Amino acid sequence: MNHLNHVAIIMDGNGRWGLKHKNSRNAGHKAGLKSVDAIIRESVKNKIKYLTLFAFSTENWKRPKKEINYLFNLLEIFLKDKINALNKQNIKLKIIGIKNFSSRLNKLLVKCENKTKKNKQLQINLALNYGSKSELLNAFKKFRKSKKKLNEENFQNYLQTKDIPDPDILIRTGNTQRLSNFLLWQIAYSEIFFEKKLWPDFNKKDYNRIIKKFKSIKRNFGNV
């Protein structure tokens, strides 16, 4: 039975869910927070140590400004409402990506990271303004200045996930089968599950079904 340490999720389908049910993409983003809550709870129950959520990509800046502003406002509200509860549950929050937002949101993100930095139950890596290609390019620039020997171990120390084990599982909801510039280095040997359900419809039963399936998979890592 495989040990599950790290789950990464591309939370796709919020906008489509909102249009389908409420005729509003923003309504889908709000509904998606319920799935976030449910998956965090189930991750704790399953004793998973790392949960990485793709919340906003470097490409998402192409979306309408009104939708982007709503997303960031929703994030602020979520963090203000939940950070104390997460802290009490011994959950750590880490931001991966470039904190290039409003000064108010940047300060809030740093505050949340500092408040929870000593927690050990579960680490939530929130990918904001994150793109894997940018991460790799920036890592290479920093690595080149170090003049260290080029190998995998040395190079990955310059990634934003340097102290985080690679994901065992990558889940993408929304009936789309692509990686969308997410953790391209880190998911080299992740088991990938593409789910038809839109993110707001993804629930704990779906999550636990995937976990059960993962534990039964024979993982060879190039061996036989």
Score class of each variant (00 low, 15 high):
Met1Val: 09
Asn2Ala: 08
Asn2Tyr: 02
His6Cys: 03
His6Arg: 06
Val7Thr: 06
Ile10Arg: 11
Gly13Phe: 02
Asn14Ala: 07
Trp17Pro: 03
Trp17Ala: 01
Lys20Glu: 11
Lys20Ile: 00
Ser24Val: 01
Asn26Gln: 10
Ala27Cys: 04
Ala31Phe: 10
Gly32Pro: 02
Val36Tyr: 01
Ser43Glu: 06
Lys45Asn: 13
Asn46Phe: 01
Tyr50Cys: 02
Tyr50Glu: 05
Thr52Pro: 08
Thr58Ile: 04
Pro64Arg: 02
Lys65Met: 09
Ile68Leu: 08
Leu71Met: 15
Leu71Gly: 14
Phe72Leu: 12
Asn73Tyr: 05
Lys80Cys: 07
Lys80His: 09
Gln89Asn: 15
Lys99Gln: 13
Ser102His: 10
Leu105Pro: 07
Lys107His: 12
Lys111Thr: 08
Lys118Arg: 10
Tyr130Asp: 05
Lys133Arg: 15
Lys133Tyr: 13
Glu135Gln: 11
Leu137Asn: 13
Ser146Leu: 01
Asn154Arg: 11
Asn154His: 13
Tyr158Cys: 03
Tyr158Pro: 04
Pro165His: 06
Asp166Ser: 11
Arg172Cys: 13
Asn175Cys: 01
Phe182Ile: 03
Phe182Asn: 08
Glu191Arg: 12
Trp199Tyr: 09
Phe202Glu: 05
Phe202Asn: 04
Lys204Thr: 11
Arg209Ala: 12
Val224Ala: 13
Val224Gln: 15
